[in-house]
Write a protein that binds this DNA or RNA. Sequence first.
DNA 1: GGATCACCGTGACTTTTGTCAACATGCGTT
DNA 2: AACGCATGTTGACAAAAGTCACGGTGATCC
Lengths: 192, 192
Amino acid sequence: MFELLFEYIQRYGKQRLSEAEREMIRGIMLHKRLRRKQLFLEEGKVCTYTGFIVRGATRQFSIDEQGNEHILQLAIENWWITDRDSYMNRIPSKYFIEAWEDTELLLMPREKLDKLLEIPAIKGMFWQMSENNHIASQKRLDDTISLPAIKRYEHFEQLYPEIVQRFPAHQIASYLGIARETLSRARSRSLR
Amino acid sequence: MFELLFEYIQRYGKQRLSEAEREMIRGIMLHKRLRRKQLFLEEGKVCTYTGFIVRGATRQFSIDEQGNEHILQLAIENWWITDRDSYMNRIPSKYFIEAWEDTELLLMPREKLDKLLEIPAIKGMFWQMSENNHIASQKRLDDTISLPAIKRYEHFEQLYPEIVQRFPAHQIASYLGIARETLSRARSRSLR
DNA sequence: GGATCACCGTGACTTTTGTCAACATGCGTT
DNA sequence: AACGCATGTTGACAAAAGTCACGGTGATCC
């Protein structure tokens, strides 16, 4: 079960993991199962874990004053889920994270983070995550302010075909910041 | 001139700089002046520097197929400017960065980055920058997909009052992803 | 196996935002 | 002083997107 994670860490941390380090990781990180619709994080709570998805799919969203959901992240295997602000700074979160399919996670508890970061490969990976996330959000932002709805959808579909497969269209619409009807229409128009 | 930077590094790196470290930074980082409208980075070029604004103001933008500019960042004193993707991965940039006022910068050359990161305070700061940027782009993204134009403007104004002072309204509009006329109307309506 | 629910599509209409054009103002340059 | 240029505002209209309502389909749950 840890194999997927070890591989991920080595790839993004750009360093190999010794057997001792693997043992340490196995000792610290927790295994957790979530059933569909179960919450990993709730608004108002501090996000005390960062989770690595071994199997399954999750979505992160906020709820505005009108009660509308706005999806910030859709995640599947090999992705990390967390509210980084809440996790790092131990402040209450504005977000929910919910299992969309039955999901298996490996968790990094916040209070053991310093211990884990002593492992060079993890430190490198953690850095890289932040880096990649920043770059990805920058691109997403650029798309969001530059492109009409349909183009945004096409970009997204091209970038994450598997996500589009595994989540219903109205979740994708929310992720793109458009109404589900708009997406539906845009899609049927682009077929012709 | 380096004093502002040293203070910044110590604050965000959460460590003190020794005199030797300061000397090393002074030896590596370059001083650069840009006049208004002069480019710091151009589309298609690799971003070989990360710059710290000592004095002045800059804007980062992309240009789409229709020739429209889309502003990604507006920056003033004490901010860093770079295309992180281009800088870190040495790939051609999609963005322009232009001095909006006459500007003074301190530059970290990409090829000396590893040397600079040997200084713990800089390493900590660089990490923190990535972290903060990640969190900030997440929030901006949340706003962009959740809020109508006028609300986005109000948020922005509250968050960065000085930016709103120093850049013309049509730049702010572009940053928010709306037409300048829309911003103008939204503003006059919110006064009544 | 009937009811319920989630999901997707579509029509009709409203609201928001963009586009194009015209105009006023202020500023710097020559 | 005269000019161009950037900026900001407003009106009229067009386009994009949102909202509300309805219906259909397929899955799931008693």
